[in-house]
Simulated assay, not measured.
Amino acid sequence: MTFPTLKRYAAPYYRNLGGWRTRRKILVIESDDWGSIRMPSRQVYERCLKAGYPVDRTWYERYDSLLSEDDLELLFDVLSSFRDAEGRHPMITANVIVGNPDFEAIKETDFQTYQYELITETFQRYPKHHRCWSLWQEGQRTGVLMPQFHGREHLNVAMFMSALRDGNPDMKFAFDNRMPGCIPKGPKRGPNLYVETTRFRSRDEKAAVLAATLEGLDLFEQLFGFRSRTFIPTNYVWSSDFDKAVREAGIEGYQGLRVMKAQQVDGTTHSVQRRLGGRNSLGQTYLTRNAFFEPSLSQAPRMDVVDQCLRDIRAAFRMGKPAIISIHRINFCGFVDEKNRDENLKALRELLQSIIEKYSDVEFFSSDGLVDVVRADRRELTEDWRR
């Protein structure tokens, strides 16, 4: 066995070392970026290419967009085709961005003041999205969608506004095409750093990030009628200095990876380790993703992605862990490229069918539901110890 093969086999088991364990085969699907605009349309995509922006070389710029009515209906059709032994459908924990930049309002202030609009307003601006809010609500009622909080917007407001005021030509092009940030062209080509919401470079920016996060949590309740109990910071970047404030705002658990990025006030980050079921000093529970189904972000054939995800799930269950699958929204997007959506939904159906066949006792949960399971198990263990 070659070293790369051995590493690929061992990695899913390594991700599950330590932390909380259970004999139950619990499966959670976590999906980020719901509600965020990224690539506004196929027309804007072609315009970017013509202007020299290599959006075809970056997955998120190539495929990611606001899910259309067709995207939602086709996804919900796949999810509603399956049930666990308790009659529950596979449920998407949809990590929601509650707002997007209001480009017209920002322009009216001559780029001096940032303004946002709620996702319900954004839906009305897009041509195939007018029923999306009602479809989200229908998804909740039928048990295939559980919204949780991801951010007020998927945008670093300080960087965005600074670039606009400075007359940055790349940002001007992005703004004119209603894009949240841009990838630069030419020799300095790199990722779209403007979407990294929770990064900050000064104490003032740090305060602004926290204020926007807390406002976003209130807006989430305004939209959905309940407080979000879990939170996944955008780009896996977070400052533990914010933990107390978001705990007071209702956040009982964090979604994320085994390795997260801790933000420092000078703009740098360092890695921090988390274990599934671990807790911080405030009692907030960590959920760590240990399975991945991201065909839009992979060059591998889609069925290879299915097989790898099944290996991830098998490793989690063998190690006594729930399987927490990362599936970003990009994998369901067909508004810019229908082929991306159609091929991925076919693969998703294959994945879910295999899970049902292999694990008759699988239990489908949302992220906040898993937090309840972990906490209840801890209470039971504590009571047994005391007895």
Results as ranks from 00 to 15, higher is better:
residue 283 G to H: 05
residue 159 M to C: 13
residue 252 E to L: 11
residue 139 G to F: 02
residue 372 D to P: 08
residue 58 T to G: 14
residue 159 M to P: 07
residue 248 E to R: 15
residue 346 K to F: 06
residue 252 E to F: 03
residue 252 E to G: 07
residue 216 G to Y: 01
residue 16 N to Y: 00
residue 324 I to E: 02
residue 77 D to Q: 14
residue 231 F to G: 00
residue 27 L to V: 12
residue 367 S to P: 03
residue 271 S to D: 14
residue 106 I to P: 03
residue 87 G to V: 08
residue 202 S to H: 10
residue 208 A to I: 10
residue 20 W to A: 01
residue 166 D to C: 08
residue 365 F to N: 00
residue 274 R to Y: 03
residue 227 R to C: 06
residue 197 T to S: 06
residue 144 V to D: 00
residue 95 N to R: 05
residue 231 F to N: 00
residue 97 I to Q: 08
residue 233 P to C: 01
residue 153 E to C: 14
residue 309 C to Y: 08
residue 192 N to S: 03
residue 100 N to S: 10
residue 8 R to N: 15
residue 175 F to L: 13
residue 371 V to D: 01
residue 225 G to F: 03
residue 170 D to C: 05
residue 12 P to F: 02
residue 164 L to G: 04
residue 238 W to Y: 13
residue 344 N to I: 01
residue 106 I to Q: 08
residue 385 W to I: 15
residue 377 D to V: 04
residue 118 L to K: 09
residue 321 K to C: 01
residue 135 L to M: 10
residue 320 G to W: 13
residue 266 D to A: 06
residue 334 G to I: 05
residue 26 I to M: 06
residue 193 L to C: 11
residue 258 R to F: 02
residue 298 S to L: 02
residue 256 G to Y: 00
residue 217 L to Y: 10
residue 195 V to N: 05
residue 250 G to K: 02
residue 197 T to L: 06
residue 37 I to Q: 09
residue 44 V to P: 02
residue 139 G to L: 03
residue 345 L to Y: 00
residue 83 R to W: 00
residue 320 G to V: 11
residue 179 M to H: 06
residue 254 Y to H: 04
residue 367 S to Q: 01
residue 77 D to H: 14
residue 178 R to Q: 15
residue 335 F to M: 12
residue 183 I to C: 12
residue 195 V to R: 02
residue 159 M to F: 13
residue 234 T to C: 12
residue 36 S to H: 09
residue 320 G to I: 11
residue 99 G to H: 10
residue 279 R to E: 15
residue 31 S to W: 03
residue 78 V to I: 11
residue 87 G to A: 07
residue 173 F to C: 05
residue 103 F to W: 13
residue 258 R to K: 11
residue 259 V to A: 08
residue 190 G to N: 14
residue 58 T to I: 15
residue 234 T to E: 10
residue 315 A to G: 05
residue 46 E to H: 07
residue 374 V to F: 01
residue 119 I to S: 00
residue 39 M to H: 05
residue 36 S to N: 12
residue 331 N to I: 08
residue 68 S to T: 08
residue 196 E to Q: 13
residue 65 S to K: 01
residue 292 F to T: 04
